[in-house]
């Protein structure tokens, strides 16, 4: 903990709260991944960790390093942008792949293709 002793209390407390909140949200998402029953329900769980879970931890680190003035706060912003943009894309790709596989197997739980008959390829 380099330099943390000089940190004023009114900065340390929000940082601590944000850290625990972010980790807690991430843990809730992880429990959801374990507990929820079907694949399409489980897709919802990780987004807790990647939205506000990640956001809280990044914000905590930004406040911490800005107050200590040890370095520029660039990495957190970049990581935040990267994860916010990429997570929906990967989740959508996996969901579509899952839908495609379920339809090929004729799983009755998934809805049929919209309007058109399925393509033959």
């Amino acid at each position: 903990m380099s330099g943390a002793a000089e940190l004023p209390l009114f900065v340390a407390i929000p940082v601590a709260i944000l850290l625990v909140l972010g980790a807690g949200l991430s843990l809730a998402g992880s429990i959801g991944l374990l507990r929820l029953k079907s694949f399409y329900e489980r897709v919802h769980a990780p987004t807790i960790g990647t939205s506000y879970g990640l956001g809280s931890v990044l914000l905590a680190s930004m406040i911490f390093f800005s107050v200590l003035q040890t370095r520029l706060v660039v990495h957190e912003v970049l990581i935040g942008i990267l994860v916010v943009v990429t997570t929906p894309v990967t989740l959508m790709l996996v969901t579509r792949a899952a839908l495609h596989r379920d339809r090929l197997e004729g799983n009755p739980e998934v809805p049929p293709p919209l309007s058109r008959p399925p393509e033959q390829d």
């Binding site: 850290l19 991430s26 992880s30 991944l33 931890v57």
Partner: peptide, 27 residues
């Protein structure tokens, strides 16, 4: 005081995140 708060909250957060890795690992 602030050092104690920070190091404890970091420990709690790290334990929670460590536990959070078991859900995805199971999947």
């Amino acid at each position: 005081m602030s050092q104690m708060i920070l190091s404890w909250s970091l420990l709690v957060a790290q334990v929670m995140l460590g536990l959070a890795m078991f859900g995805p690992l199971w999947r």
